[in-house]
């Protein structure tokens, strides 16, 4: 039960129930669609980039499991105001955190995002947690095809 509690922390349940930045964004400069065929999670991610490659605004819509929804919600909150370079750096750390071997001593300094650290105990759910991030990557690259986690 403790691992489950670790995965489904209150913060995650809250972001699942009340996702932040959960809306379309007509003024977005780029967007991408993400799809996880395993459980049918799908989201559209909107990014508004400033002239200096700064992420001015970030939002998403879609449906999915608690982990994918909370992860998208947390990501959009966390990356607002960051540069694209910073965002990529955070993604690398985030990815290392959710794919860490169970029990491995880790310290990623990811602030609020670290509530998703429990995902590493559930390898089948890593794709759910990283869907929004892969979709962001795809949006920043200007790819039009739906990104999947497969």
């Amino acid at each position: 039960m403790s691992e489950l509690r670790e995965l489904y922390q209150e913060v995650i349940l809250d972001h699942n129930k009340h996702p932040r930045n959960f809306h379309e964004m007509p003024e977005a400069t780029c967007y991408a669609e993400g799809y996880n065929p395993l459980c049918g999670d799908q989201l559209t991610l909107y990014v508004k980039l400033g002239a200096d490659q700064k992420i001015e605004d970030l939002s998403f819509v879609g449906s999915g499991c608690a982990i994918s929804k909370a992860s998208a919600s947390l990501m959009t909150d966390e990356l607002k105001g960051k540069s694209v370079k910073e965002a990529k750096n955070i993604f690398e750390k985030f990815h290392a955190m959710v794919t860490a071997k169970p029990g491995e001593e880790t310290s990623f300094d990811l602030g609020k995002l670290s509530v998703l650290a429990g995902v590493c105990e559930f390898p089948a759910r890593v794709k759910c947690a990283s869907l929004a991030w892969h979709t962001l990557n795809s949006a920043l690259k200007g790819e039009e095809e739906t990104v999947t986690t497969e």
Partner: peptide, 23 residues
């Protein structure tokens, strides 16, 4: 209601119960 099948599948698995969650 309000709980995604994939989350249900994960929690059931921790209880030893193997089911399929998906389409």
């Amino acid at each position: 209601k309000d709980i995604h099948p994939h989350d249900i599948g994960t929690i059931l698995d921790r209880e030893g119960v193997a089911v399929r969650a998906g389409h």
